[in-house]
Design a protein around this nucleic acid. Structure first.
Length: 223
DNA sequence: AACAAGATTAACT
DNA sequence: GTTAATCTTGTTA
């Protein structure tokens, strides 16, 4: 499948498949490392409304059975967590507080229930479609921040649970081509997991400096 | 079968 | 800063 990048790229046209991270990218057992490497990549959704995308700007690592904040803590293998135990490179979507769909990237080999929660995007393509979903115009600096807000903008819901993110189907992740350095990343404790006891303080939340990212986006001609 | 809690958000005071 | 909205899941009985 071919897909034309926006006009500022002139006649540059590239196969999406060349931008899809390979299977090995998701198989890494280091979920913290993947959480950082996902920053600056592009998440894309394809729904009947059209294509929407955003640059991933905030992530959190959930380190499987040994992490008190993880749904799989203690080896809990249930209908809900079963997706986390599959091979990396698929989506884990669940309903939080009965209201919000939260989107995770499952990572690691089968049997290792690691996942990365996507907490923030900088909307890129399909901003008009996103506006329709929230019934007002989009503020790209605010409306993509928050795990529930991100899924609403992208039109992601429980039906996306288990979706393969390694292929361009309904929901996938692409390399953006942006050059992200360690100096653009800050880390801190995860949000909303006070119940996790001693693991609540782990610095497993990662944020991209939006100012620097936008500079990169302009440099790369994505905006 | 019943129940408490939750990886949140928006709209309040 | 506080609170309502809303429902699936995991746990306990």
């Amino acid at each position: 499948m071919l897909y034309r990048m926006d006009s500022s790229d002139g006649d540059q046209e590239m196969r999406i498949s060349e931008r899809l991270p390979d299977r090995d990218f998701y198989m890494d057992g280091d979920v913290v490392g993947i959480s950082k490497r996902l920053l600056g990549m592009k998440i894309v959704s394809n729904t009947p409304d059209g294509i929407c995308s955003g640059i991933i700007t905030e992530t959190e690592a959930y380190a499987g059975e040994t992490d008190r904040a993880s749904h799989a803590f203690g080896g809990r293998l249930t209908q809900r967590t079963e997706v986390m135990y599959r091979e990396g490179g698929i989506a884990y979507v669940y309903l939080c507080y009965g209201l919000h769909s939260l989107l995770n990237v499952v990572t690691g080999p089968a049997g290792l229930p690691h996942a990365v929660l996507l907490r923030g995007i900088l909307p890129l393509e399909g901003i008009g479609i996103m506006g329709g979903r929230v019934k007002r115009s989009i503020n790209v600096h605010k409306d993509g921040l928050g795990p529930g807000k991100l899924t609403r903008l992208l039109g992601v819901g429980k039906s996306h649970n288990g979706t393969d993110l390694k292929c361009n189907g309904l929901l996938w992740i692409e390399k953006s081509g942006l050059s992200i350095t360690e100096s653009m990343i800050t880390s801190g404790p995860r949000i909303g997991i006070d119940y996790a006891g001693e693991d609540a303080g782990l610095p497993y939340r990662f944020l991209l400096d939006v100012v620097q990212v936008e500079r990169e986006i302009k440099k790369a001609g994505l905006m």
